[in-house]
Design a protein around this nucleic acid. Structure first.
Lengths: 336, 336
DNA sequence: AGGCTGACGTGTTACGTATAACGACGCCGT
DNA sequence: ACGGCGTCGTTATACGTAACACGTCAGCCT
């Protein structure tokens, strides 16, 4: 590990500016009002600029006991919900002089990779998505403050939770679909167990029962091909054909549309399909998906705000974030 | 920033194990063969385990002058090409006791966020995607070793490059499309300038000229809606309607398909469409896209290998990675 | 017996930074 | 003239780790 061209230290800056290292630290740290004259301050800044000085972050962290970096654990990079969460979190972080580092959870990258035990990166706290199901245990071992996103508020561990009103989202979907007149509904859920998916299933079940609609269930991994196969199997199964398929995720909905098209059924003419999350995928397919829009950036912002609050010993803000049904072209009244 | 429950240090471990701090460091660092007896070594390990000791990374980095962390700069999280690059890079990194941190380049997150100047995270090196066009300048200022991915090999700056044989990929596309008999071709390129896109355009132009085909061009931002609008405008324009649309990216191709469908044209019956990159999107849409498959994981692996080589003062491996045309349902011979 | 060797550890230092504690210097009021 | 005080800056120290250079002690050869 060769050190390229020996980076200048604050001591070097001090020498060329003709002051002590402490003064350099004061000036560059911004805490010099009334302690250092404007003239020497400028000398220091000039010297730092001339040398291309950058503070050594390891030394700073060691001294301060703080890294100014948070970790965001997400289950999948491909899902742009999480990309938007990151954007929101990063915006808040930067505004507070913090950094955010992204970590795709083990599921996506193999169990050998854990940022917590080898602890490669020095961190002040962790924000984890609910779908990174194994994260809490690993993080607890690291003793870092943890903020959970979209997760069971009753679960122990996290210092704070940021939740979406998922149940209300599914109720909106159900009201829309049932309101169109559908009474034979297939629920396509995720095969990976997770609180958010349980909430969806529960809300849909209640709504269907209240409306007297028949509800069947199928499950699939969160990818288009798996969803296509699951729907093909479910539709080919016994019993009356569903007139609407309510999916836990836009990815599943895209797979459902493909399955139906291959079976010679038209969406929404023969079968209506709904998604969830309003990913970019929702408007990339034809027809565009009726789905539930999630304030992903707000989730990221609230998550980061909550982490900063916890770090400061303050109380994080509470309350669920609202979601909104987006009606597009994949739903219509049932034929006949 | 409260320190939760004062983490134990190596000195604490030393005290409870009844040895000196130096011995703890030797044992836990693994360099004790012949320097410490097996019995004391076990005592140390037991004490460390009992206290839940984790080395302080800031202190370690400060002492070692190395962080064991690399930064991967990507232009977009949503694009799963980069997710796969990350997977490959992470696998190699972990095998070498390294960590990888992900950074979506400013374009995706606002120019205020730069990991280099504020330098929040301590790094040993940077791997940057070509599309993060402004990265090299910012990184040069940080004096970190830089590996560029899929970028102009003639450009100065990077310590190493990992390249795909993009030109060959486009030649394969052209051979396929022209071989089907298409002579009226529309090239849908990216509106953001980048080496990889220039290579695509150049390769296609040469192939079209050699085959005597007419080639028009349109440009679009890398999102489905923008591509749809660009294609709608281009097809509605003057001159004979193209029978094939060659796109620089699957996202553009998805937009092209949507535009054509809305214009009442069938893919591939009336117009053939090709993509590039073989994203998951390519098989999520109907028809599935004929596109160019890229060994994304290999790119990530090679990138990380190259960075580790540079860090060790070794010579990084050279040579382009091959790409492969994947023929699916979006291309056919032209009507008539 | 004396000194050498190898096994087993320990004392000490340095990494680069931030900050508490401590001057030196000039200016003022009395 | 002298203490006091604001201004401007320095000295010294600690953060937790890794590793160099040294000690100590038993055993063994000569």
């Amino acid at each position: 590990m060769t050190q390229h061209a020996a980076r200048p230290t604050s001591k070097d800056v001090a020498r060329t500016a003709g002051v002590s290292q402490a003064t350099v630290s004061l000036v560059l740290g911004g805490k010099w009002r009334g302690r250092v004259s404007e003239r020497t301050a400028r000398q220091v800044r000039d010297a730092a600029g001339a040398l291309g000085y950058r503070p050594n972050l390891a030394a700073r962290s060691l001294r301060l006991g703080t890294t100014g970096t948070a970790l965001l654990v997400v289950p999948a990079l491909t899902n742009d919900f999480f990309a938007r969460v990151y954007t929101g979190a990063a915006a808040v972080a930067v505004a507070h002089g913090f950094g955010v580092v992204l970590y795709p959870s083990p599921a996506g990258v193999g169990p050998a990779v854990s940022p917590f035990d080898p602890g490669r990166t020095a961190l002040d706290g962790v924000i984890a998505s609910s779908m990174a199901a194994d994260a809490p245990a690993a993080i607890r071992g690291s003793r870092l403050p943890l903020v959970m996103l979209d997760s069971d508020p009753a679960a122990p561990g996290p210092a704070a939770c940021v939740n979406l009103d998922i149940a209300d989202g599914m109720r909106q979907v159900a009201a829309h679909v049932l309101g169109l007149g559908h009474r034979e509904v297939l629920h396509l859920g995720s095969a990976v167990p997770s609180w958010t998916f349980d909430v969806r299933a529960d809300a849909l079940r209640r709504a269907a029962r209240a409306a007297g609609a028949r509800l069947r269930s199928a499950r699939s991994a969160l990818d288009v091909t798996a969803a296509r196969e699951a729907v093909t199997a479910a539709v080919a199964g016994t019993g009356p054909r569903p007139t609407a398929i309510v999916c836990d995720d836009d990815i599943l909905a895209a797979g459902a549309c493909k399955a139906l098209r291959r079976l010679g059924l038209r969406v929404p003419g023969d079968v209506s399909v709904t998604g969830f999350d309003d990913l970019t995928l929702a408007t990339a397919v034809e027809p565009e998906l009726t789905t539930v829009g999630l304030p992903a950036e707000r989730v990221g912002e609230r998550g980061m705000e909550a982490l900063l609050a916890v770090l400061d010993g303050r109380e994080p803000e509470a309350g669920d974030l609202p979601v909104r049904l987006v009606v597009r072209g994949s739903t219509a009244a049932p034929a006949r």
